[in-house]
């Protein structure tokens, strides 16, 4: 039994993730000689750069005890809006700004209903995800728009700065900022406290509504930014852009040890789980598994990421229960009588 405090860190979720990550990487190296190359590593991040950037903001929202199912639709909407505007001969710079503004408005819309009208975020973002996707369909119908200006396409391509792309640099910078904000600032603490106990947070004078609104506005802004990155990376936009990205994003966050009920989890864990998911997908691609199997495995991983801690907790309880049994108290040893006491 691990009772010693020095060994406690081994049981932490992040350590388990690190072990899994090492195992996945080892398997990948075994499987393919192409795995260990700069190209593959850039590719690894590049192929789902929008999802991993989005996962950072989603971490804040889930720790805050809410969920945002509409991120994929906001991504699609801003990409389609950019495409439509560009198609109508509006300069691309202008179109980018408008798309970002509209994404922010979408986030504000969600945040208003959730923070100020007090509606459940699950219902609101489910409805708004249908609505935003619908607007994207109205904008582009069944056409696809492409042939964007060169500077825009360059944003999505690797080799912009050294071998890195704009998205990867943005991810690294955002990860640093998010890490500092979530773990070291008052705002980050508020996010945790609200997720733990909304009522207690309000009575301690934390501005619950403003915090929630801020997070959803940020979510909308970053989602539209990711939508534009997707458009730049693919070079073409369709109405179904970024469809069903929310599964991967939420999986990355939950696998990182963030509780769906809010209040717990760290960004380090999410960072590790992002690496696990990316490497797993990369390895499966190298082994020629189809995209659908990959999605299935990600789905199974999502379920396992919650089932495992549950089982671990249950066995711990069971063990406590086993030790919680009739045994003589040391002072009463001379007598026959004993008493119930908890051990450990």
């Amino acid at each position: 039994m691990l009772q010693n405090r020095d060994w406690r860190w081994l049981l932490r979720w992040e350590s388990l993730l690190a072990v899994i990550l090492v195992a996945v990487i080892a398997a990948n190296i075994q499987m393919s000689s192409h795995y260990l190359g700069t190209d593959n590593f850039v590719n690894l991040f590049q192929l789902s750069i929008e999802k991993i950037i989005m996962a950072l903001i989603m971490t804040f929202i889930i720790i805050n005890g809410e969920i945002d199912l509409s991120v994929a639709s906001v991504m699609g909407l801003s990409a389609c809006l950019f495409g439509r505007l560009y198609d109508q001969d509006i300069p691309a710079e202008m179109a980018v700004v408008i798309a970002l503004v509209v994404g922010t408005v979408c986030g504000t819309f969600n945040g208003f209903w959730i923070a100020y009208a007090g509606l459940p975020s699950l219902a609101v973002t489910l409805a708004s995800s249908i609505m935003f996707r619908g607007v994207a369909r109205i904008l582009l119908e069944d056409r696809s728009v492409g042939l964007f200006p060169q500077w825009f396409n360059n944003l999505g391509q690797p080799d912009l700065i050294g071998p890195l792309s704009f998205g990867i640099i943005l991810f690294v910078v955002l990860f640093g900022i998010c890490l500092i904000v979530l773990q070291l600032t008052a705002f980050g603490r508020y996010v945790y406290i609200i997720g733990n106990n909304k009522g207690a947070a309000r009575y301690s004078g934390i501005k619950v509504r403003q915090t929630k609104l801020t997070l959803f506005i940020l979510s909308g802004l970053v989602a539209s930014l990711c939508g534009l990155l997707l458009a730049a990376r693919l070079g073409t936009v369709r109405a179904n852009a970024a469809e069903e990205f929310e599964l991967d994003i939420i999986t990355m966050v939950l696998l990182g040890g963030v509780s769906i009920f809010g209040g717990t989890g760290t960004l380090v864990g999410v960072g590790l789980s992002i690496l696990v998911v990316l490497n797993l997908r990369n390895g499966m691609s190298l082994a020629h598994y189809s995209g659908n199997i990959q999605t299935s495995v990600v789905g199974a991983l999502l379920i396992a990421s919650v089932l495992l801690p549950n089982l671990m907790r249950d066995t711990r309880r069971l063990r406590q229960w086993r030790d919680f049994r009739f045994r003589p108290r040391e002072t009463d040893l001379e007598e026959e009588e004993g008493t119930w006491q908890a051990v450990g």
């Binding site: 995800s129 609505m131 935003f132 996707r133 619908g134 369909r137 109205i138």
Partner: peptide, 14 residues
């Protein structure tokens, strides 16, 4: 236009 359907649906749910 059939593409309007989803937007109207989403609004109704909300």
């Amino acid at each position: 236009n059939e593409f309007w359907k989803d937007a109207i649906f989403g609004m109704f749910i909300l």
